[in-house]
Measured scan of single mutants.
Amino acid sequence: VTVDIKGMEYHFDNPEEAKKFAERMAKELGGELKVENGTLKVE
């Protein structure tokens, strides 16, 4: 699973970990979490 945090890509084997990480980063950065082509994106 790929997580894109404002252009920086992180790769996770575990989808649950990827989702938790993306949600935490969205909250910390005040960004919006989206799913695009199987990639979790925070913008």
Rank of each mutant, 00 (worst) to 15 (best):
Y10V: 07
T39W: 11
G31V: 10
L33W: 05
E36K: 08
K19Q: 13
V35H: 08
T2I: 13
K19T: 10
E43G: 11
K27A: 11
H11D: 04
T39I: 15
Y10P: 04
M8Y: 12
K6I: 11
K41D: 05
G7M: 01
D4H: 15
T39F: 12
K6W: 15
A26D: 01
K6G: 15
A18E: 03
V3L: 04
I5F: 08
A26S: 07
L29Q: 05
I5P: 01
T2H: 08
G31N: 05
G38T: 03
R24I: 10
I5R: 01
N37R: 03
M8W: 09
F21K: 00
T39D: 08
R24N: 10
N14S: 13
K6N: 15
H11V: 11
M8P: 03
Y10I: 09
K34D: 05
E32G: 07
E17A: 09
G30D: 09
K41W: 08
H11P: 05
L40Q: 06
L40G: 06
G7L: 01
G30P: 03
E17H: 05
V3M: 02
K20F: 07
G38W: 00
K19V: 11
E9P: 04
P15D: 09
V3A: 01
A18I: 00
M8D: 10
K34T: 11
F21Q: 01
P15F: 15
K41E: 06
L29S: 06
A26M: 09
E17S: 07
M8H: 13
E23N: 00
A22N: 02
E16V: 11
E17D: 12
D13R: 04
K19M: 15
D4A: 14
I5S: 02
D4R: 14
R24D: 11
E17W: 02
E16H: 09
G7D: 04
E28F: 11
K6T: 09
L29M: 10
V42M: 02
L33G: 04
V3K: 01
V42Y: 01
E36A: 10
E17C: 12
E9S: 11
Y10A: 03
E36H: 10
K34C: 12
T2W: 11
K6P: 02
L33H: 04
V3P: 01
E28N: 08
E28I: 14
Y10T: 05
F12G: 01
T39A: 10
G31T: 06
N37M: 03
K19N: 10
M25W: 10
G7H: 03
E28P: 02
K20L: 10
V35I: 13
K20P: 00
K19E: 10
N37H: 05
D4L: 15
T2G: 02
E32A: 12
I5C: 13
T2M: 09
D4K: 15
F12H: 00
E23L: 02
N14Y: 05
E23D: 09
K20G: 08
V42H: 03
K34F: 12
F12K: 00
M25I: 09
E9M: 13
R24L: 11
E43R: 10
F21V: 02
N37P: 04
G38M: 01
K34S: 10
L29A: 05
Y10K: 04
E9A: 08
A22I: 09
L33D: 04
F12D: 02
N14V: 05
F12Q: 01
K27R: 13
E16Q: 09
L33T: 06
T39V: 15
M8C: 13
D13T: 10
K6V: 11
T39S: 11
A22G: 07
E23Y: 00
L40E: 05
V1D: 02
E36C: 13
T39K: 15
G31E: 07
K41M: 10
P15I: 14
E16K: 07
E28S: 09
L29F: 08
L40I: 15
K19P: 02
N14P: 00
V35S: 10
K27F: 10
L40T: 06
K27P: 01
M8G: 04
G38N: 09
E32L: 12
L40D: 06
K20R: 13
D4S: 15
P15A: 13
K27G: 06
G7Y: 04
E16M: 08
L29D: 03
N14W: 04
E16A: 11
K34G: 06
E43N: 11
V3I: 07
K6L: 15
E23K: 02
D13K: 07
D13M: 07
R24H: 13
N14I: 05
E32K: 14
K20H: 10
A22F: 08
G38L: 01
T2S: 07
K34V: 14
E23Q: 04
D13C: 14
A26Y: 03
M25V: 07
K41G: 06
N37Y: 02
F12P: 02
K41T: 11
M8E: 11
T39N: 12
A18W: 01
G7N: 04
L33Q: 04
E9G: 04
E32M: 12
T2V: 13
N14A: 05
E43S: 12
V3E: 00
V35A: 08
I5M: 03
K20Y: 06
E43A: 12
K20V: 08
E9W: 11
R24M: 13
E28V: 12
V3S: 00
D4M: 15
E28K: 11
E9D: 06
K6D: 15
L33R: 03
A26V: 10
D13N: 10
D13A: 10
V1M: 12
G30K: 10
K41I: 13
N37G: 11
K27S: 09
D4E: 14
A26N: 04
K6F: 15
E36G: 09
V1Q: 07
E43D: 11
A18K: 01
E43H: 12
D4C: 15
I5N: 01
V42G: 05
T2P: 02
K20C: 14
K41N: 06
K19W: 15
E17Q: 08
I5Y: 08
K27N: 09
M25C: 12
Y10S: 03
A18P: 00
K34N: 08
V42C: 08
L40P: 06
P15G: 08
E43V: 15
F12L: 00
